[in-house]
Design a protein around this nucleic acid. Structure first.
Length: 403
DNA sequence: TCTGGGGTCCTAGGACCC
DNA sequence: TCTGGGGTCCTAGGACCC
């Protein structure tokens, strides 16, 4: 399906400096002042702190040098999750198709809502006002014909702004921007383009696709060329599920005994499997992430015969992958250990098989969907909707399979 | 600047299958 | 004995994003 909206009706909603804004909301003394959510690496910086050059992912020491007067507060993740849920409740009520991208970001497709809710710009204005009034947070919104441009627009609208790129104005907006503003262009790709004298989106757009592919690789080149021309066929997808669940822990420089490492592994596996069970998800591939004493990285993975969310089999795999690296770890030291489970599928396939697929009885379907929600929680329902819509990509177990 | 924690997608080679 | 043409799945690593 190639979705290309004739009018700008895709919204990208993005909470400004999310963690830092929540802290300023809850402590009036922090308002108007540089706030860093830390300590250690900067998780979020208020706009007052950003004015001094402080950025997220920056080391705490560097941040202190740039902005010695910043107030550093410890993160309160459960408060952020609550705030995020309150915002998403408002977004979910505003459009039938809302794609949750991360804790502070979402796409909305508001096509066809003109008669009920007004123009996309009016919907965006109302969303911003409601989030401000009801949750107390600044929300920036970009409106455009594609997801990519809506995201670029919300970025340009920040802080606390709204920017609508009308159909037909795309190239004029896009072309003067630096290439880094394109989705998927980071330091490495920007450097490669700069080596060819390409700095702006306009310069990139002037090149034939083959040339761009030669500079940055096949897939990336194709995507960049399309984005520079504002071609982005990705539709807004309701409630897209996550593809992996992981947890990791930095270990510092000190040496750890195999027993201490095993204790960390147990804690990581426990965290990951708990989250999988809470989300009714099973996984088949276990990835062990390692970072050595010199900060080089490696990953080791193993795919199991059957998907699971149980602690024991996943811990067994993690232990065996870890044991195979023992010598390397002893030689080079270990500064980070992580466990990620991918190849996820929903654990509710048993219930899915009970759907009356050939009956087309809406009442029976509703009953089944309600039953699934009661047993497995709302996270299972997005999957059921996808299947209802005929999503062939969703895993579909055969009746003879176990589980 | 000595370094968090959570993710996504792509590439490439090898094993294996018909 | 040598080899076509099509494919899937797994593993490891890299770039990127918030």
């Amino acid at each position: 399906v190639f979705v290309s909206a004739a009018v700008a009706s895709i919204l990208h909603a993005d909470l400004d400096a999310f963690f830092a804004s929540v802290e300023q909301r809850d402590d009036p003394q922090l308002r108007g002042r540089p706030v860093i959510v830390g300590p250690g690496v900067v998780l979020a910086a208020s706009y007052e702190a950003r004015a001094f050059g402080v950025r997220s992912a920056m080391g705490g020491r560097r941040a202190h040098e740039l902005c010695p007067d910043a107030i550093v507060v410890a993160p309160r993740f459960s408060t952020y999750v609550r705030a995020s849920r309150a915002v998403f409740a408002i977004l979910d009520a505003a459009a039938p198709t809302v794609e949750h991208v991360s804790i502070d970001e979402a796409f909305l497709d508001v096509r066809g809502l003109e008669a009920i809710s007004g123009s996309p710009a009016e919907i965006a204005r109302r969303l911003r006002a409601r989030v401000r009034q009801e949750v107390g947070l600044p929300l920036s919104v970009g409106v455009a014909t594609t997801k990519h441009l809506a995201k670029v627009a919300s970025g340009a609208a920040k802080p606390d702004g709204l920017l609508v790129i009308a159909a037909g104005d795309e190239q004029a907006f896009l072309h003067p921007l630096p290439v880094q503003r394109l989705w998927g262009v980071g330091a490495a790709t920007a450097q490669r383009l700069r080596a060819h004298g390409i700095v702006t989106v306009g310069q990139l757009a002037a090149l034939p696709e083959e040339l761009v592919m030669g500079m940055v690789g096949r897939a990336a080149g194709r995507r960049l060329h399309a984005l520079a021309h504002n071609r982005d066929p990705r539709p807004v997808r309701a409630g897209r599920g996550r593809r992996s669940v992981g947890s990791q822990r930095a270990l510092g420089r000190g040496r750890r005994s195999p027993e201490a490492l095993d204790a960390v592994a147990i804690a990581l596996v426990d965290r990951v499997t708990r989250r999988m069970r809470a989300g009714a998800r099973l996984g088949r591939t276990v990835v062990l992430r390692l970072r050595f004493g010199d900060f080089s990285r490696a990953s080791r993975s193993r795919t199991m015969a059957r998907p699971t969310a149980a602690t024991a089999p996943i811990l067994t795999v993690v232990r065996s992958l870890l044991a195979a690296e023992r010598e390397t770890i002893e030689r080079r030291g270990l500064t980070l250990l992580g466990v990620t489970v991918t190849n996820l599928e929903s654990s509710v396939t048993g219930a899915q098989l009970e759907l009356p697929l050939d009956g087309h009885d809406p009442a029976a379907l509703d009953t089944t969907v309600d039953a699934i929600r009661d047993r497995f929680g709302t996270s299972a329902i997005s999957r059921a909707r996808l299947l209802q819509a005929g999503d062939r990509a969703a895993p579909w177990r055969q009746p003879g399979d176990e589980g």
